[in-house]
Nucleic acid binder design. Structure first.
Lengths: 349, 349
DNA sequence: TTGTATGCGTTATCAC
DNA sequence: GTGATAACGCATACAA
């Protein structure tokens, strides 16, 4: 095992002082060209790398940012991470990840762990539990300790931080408008409980389009899926709920689902009862990524640009980190979505 | 913004020395009970947290481990990460992630970045390019600098490190045996190029089972998919290759695919030509996670236990980190897989 | 042109 | 029981 090179060792070897070495390696002109050359050559030979922990201590920053997400085994979040990674690395920052697993408690524990780890700032998407309990003290604390936060996707109002979100309402409106344009009259909405901000916004988009088109809103066509419980259980409940709706309302000719899983489940249920898609039934969903491509028929989706979201979040955080004066004004940044038409909606000619 | 508390500030506020404060906070009995109580109370009140960067500098470790993966937008790797996260966090370690994007160069850059960031050890799955060029100098360097490595999934021989892999060959054999048992006579193998270790092992499993059952090996039923190029292009090539094979060999009655994407593509192609699954055609694939559940018909898969893989890798790395003496003997740990029978294979009665 | 001293926050050793 | 000091690795203001 190679011993680690330090300024001190180089200084000893070469019979000069530590500061001379330090200056030489920074190519400081105070040091004679001769010494600079010699020292630099020596350093390169022994593969000297400055100890970043020591630098961190000096500068009181770590050039590391923390990401807190509810779930890592999830395409959307993985994409966001890859976006963050990309810009962070290109700017010489490291990225640390904490997974809250949708729990407020784990969110807090993870943030503490990262704060103790000397993180410079956070990029975070809140857990369902956090949203549900509306408990944001840990976020306030981080901010008041001078560790800035950028929230994305699952965000809340009233905190001193920037926010990056998809223009959920607008995207949702575009989707429902497409369904109407292709002739759907009775559109089933599959959404989340209202405490999930994005679900709520998407619901609002749906309602607004109906209102704008003077279509009566039928509460019985709105399903707010209860997403408590484990994965398996959840899938079964979802399945049953959808069946029930189709039983009770055979007039349903369109479905707008706020996520892929809901939509795929609809596809399966519809397949079972011999409903032709898109002839008898059109389906659109928001999408994280891959299921919609490989489903049969392939799903028309509102594509969430996770990578872009990550990139922007990181850019905002790092820009803030690298400016001198304290940030006092915060804003909400909207990411545009794209509607990708595939096989579950009729083609408009 | 709350100023950050340090030992020094506490010492000043309370009119004692820094070392007294340090000792008091460690509940050192040298310090009078009275002073201990006072100092601890004060520290708690002002929410003192030791500066871990300073600790890192002193101890020359960071309690942070680095993960290098080829791709984060990938279920299997996401699962591995979640496994690593879980044990690392429970043992008070942070996790930083670098994504090589299947490039040797980015793998090196990322490792350098993390090494400079003061990582204690690596958990890594090699990029395709690294495997292809068989260039492992960066790994050797890390090891020789005293930064241990645990490789998982995509591993190579000849390095001084532990390895965690799925028992690919065995799993592959189980899968092909099931196909034979359900009556398949002409099994198409969809695998990767041989330089991908896991693809190669899975291929070997396939060959071995055929040999054991005295079934002649037909090279024309083995497709080693070329996975160069972007996602879209790749999908198209894959699609065409599979079509061609079905055209040329209508006798194919079983498919063993080394990953989900290959298998789903087979499902789609088969669907197009009206092949009934599993009546006319059985399909099994290795699986990362979610596509197989939601495909129709649902896929019989060899489940790769990514979470378990992550947990074991982390455990091995941390155990090594926390033992005093240098590790000199390294081993390969096999993770058992489970064959999950779903709709693409006939049920055995 | 080079070297010395100081400080970043902590712990450990040793002196009082 | 308490406190001064050195050390971890580095950068830098200042002295020589």
């Amino acid at each position: 095992m190679k011993p680690k090179m330090t300024l001190k060792k180089i200084a000893n070897e070469l019979g000069v002082s530590i500061s001379t070495v330090s200056k030489a390696l920074h190519n400081n002109k105070e040091i004679s060209q001769e010494n600079r050359d010699k020292i630099q050559a020596f350093a390169k030979l022994y593969n000297y790398r400055p100890n970043s922990i020591a630098l961190n201590l000096k500068n009181n920053k770590s050039r590391t940012i923390g990401i807190i997400i509810p779930e890592i085994v999830h395409f959307f979040f993985a994409k966001v991470i890859s976006g963050i990674e990309k810009v962070a690395n290109s700017r010489g920052y490291n990225v640390v990840i904490g997974v809250s697993n949708e729990s407020l408690e784990k969110e807090i524990i993870n943030m503490d762990l990262l704060v103790d780890g000397g993180i410079d700032g956070f990029i975070i998407s809140l857990s369902k539990e956090t949203l549900f309990h509306q408990d944001y003290h840990h976020l306030r604390e981080s901010i008041s300790q001078g560790i800035p936060i950028v929230m994305f996707d699952r965000v809340v109002e009233g905190l001193e931080c920037d926010k990056v979100i998809i223009d959920d309402k607008r995207a949702s409106k575009k989707a429902v408008e497409l369904l109407l344009a292709t002739g759907c009259k009775n559109i089933l909405l599959l959404t989340t409980q209202d405490y999930i901000t994005i679900g709520k916004l998407r619901t609002e988009g749906y309602l607004e389009v109906l209102r704008e088109n003077n279509i009566p809103i039928r509460e019985e066509l709105i399903v707010k899926v209860d997403d408590k419980g484990g994965m398996d259980e959840y899938q079964i409940i979802l399945d049953q709920e959808i069946r029930k709706k189709f039983d009770a309302h055979p007039e349903i000719d369109g479905v707008f689902a706020v996520n892929e899983i809901y939509a795929i489940t609809v596809l399966n249920v519809a397949g079972m009862r011999g409903l032709k898609i898109p002839e008898n039934l059109s389906v659109i969903s928001f999408s994280d990524g891959i299921l919609s491509l490989h489903s049969r028929p392939s799903l028309t989706t509102v594509k969430q640009n996770g990578v872009q979201m990550g990139e922007l979040s990181a850019k905002i955080l790092l820009d803030g980190l690298e400016t001198e004066e304290d940030q006092t004004v915060f804003s909400t940044h909207l990411i545009e979505t794209v509607l990708i038409e595939r096989d579950t909606t009729k083609r408009l000619v």
